[in-house]
């Protein structure tokens, strides 16, 4: 079954068209990476799927159901998004508890206290953080809260927009391990935007390379690891990565 299917997706903001004919199929349970040039429209694709970029032509289907152009309540239980910036994605005046129970409140789900505690445990947040404010947490802890918030409604699909790029390597490792474990335990589907190819190798099984609003290549991660990507731009990215990697003894 396909979890997310995009066909000939053209997304625009005002008069500027950002993506051109994006076509992708992501199987349920897969972990799919979207990599590519900065400004090429990766985040925009995620936003269109989520309903935050309502101006598009083409088809978006999630779990076989066509998407409407806006945000709808039913969809929010199917698919959630984690944003890039752990500093900007939490409400500065709300405790972690309020942030996490808000989705339950919106959907009228009871037993909030227990669910909040369970989800916090699932993302490895200690109970003592529950009534803290975001400014009392570190970047990595905030990103865990953001992931927990996305998980509150028990969606099957997570859209991850550079979930670790603002974090340092040791925290990045923790978050990556967490995402890997959650997928294993809960059978989630990931569509993740990143510019970090090593992260793709660690977490994903397929990837698409974007440039200038178009998908230039879709490949298996095995190809990435073996360095056998075909498209010239993908090869350029890969080469830049290789040249960059540190020789550690």
């Amino acid at each position: 079954m396909t979890a997310i299917s995009l066909k000939n997706l053209d997304i625009s903001y005002g008069h500027t068209q950002i993506t051109h004919g994006v076509t992708l199929d992501i199987a349920a349970g897969a972990s799919f990476a979207l990599v590519g040039e900065s400004g090429s429209g990766k985040s925009t694709v995620l936003k269109a799927i989520a309903g935050l970029a309502p101006q598009w032509k083409g088809d978006i289907a999630v779990n076989g159901k066509p998407r409407s152009h806006g945000i709808d309540r039913g969809f929010s239980k199917m698919c959630q998004m984690v944003f890039q910036d752990p500093y900007g994605s939490l409400h500065p005046r709300k405790t972690i508890d309020t942030t996490l129970s808000e989705p339950l409140d919106i959907h009228g789900i009871g037993n909030q206290g227990k669910r909040v505690e369970e989800t916090m445990a699932a993302v490895g947040l200690d109970r003592r953080f529950r009534f803290r404010f975001p400014h009392q947490l570190s970047g990595g802890q905030r990103q865990r809260v953001a992931i927990a918030r996305a998980l509150m409604l028990e969606p099957r699909i997570l859209l991850l927009d550079e979930p670790t790029s603002a974090l340092d390597v040791s925290v990045q490792a923790e978050i990556l391990n967490l995402l890997k474990r959650l997928r294993r335990e809960q059978g989630l589907t990931y569509l993740m935007v990143t510019h970090n190819l090593p992260v793709v190798s660690f977490l994903c099984d397929r990837l698409a390379v974007m440039r200038g609003g178009r998908i230039v290549e879709v490949a298996d991660v095995a190809q990435l690891k073996a360095g056998t990507l075909v498209d010239p731009y993908s090869r350029e990215l890969l080469a830049a990565n290789k040249g960059h990697a540190l020789e550690s003894a």
Partner: peptide
């Protein structure tokens, strides 16, 4: 336009709720 507002919108909150619960307190 910040992400925490986008996040509550994605959870299905109505405009009244976003304004009343998330914008006004700030």
């Amino acid at each position: 336009n910040s992400e925490f507002i986008a996040a509550v919108q994605l959870q299905g909150a109505s405009a009244t709720r976003v304004i009343g619960r998330h914008i006004l307190p700030l």
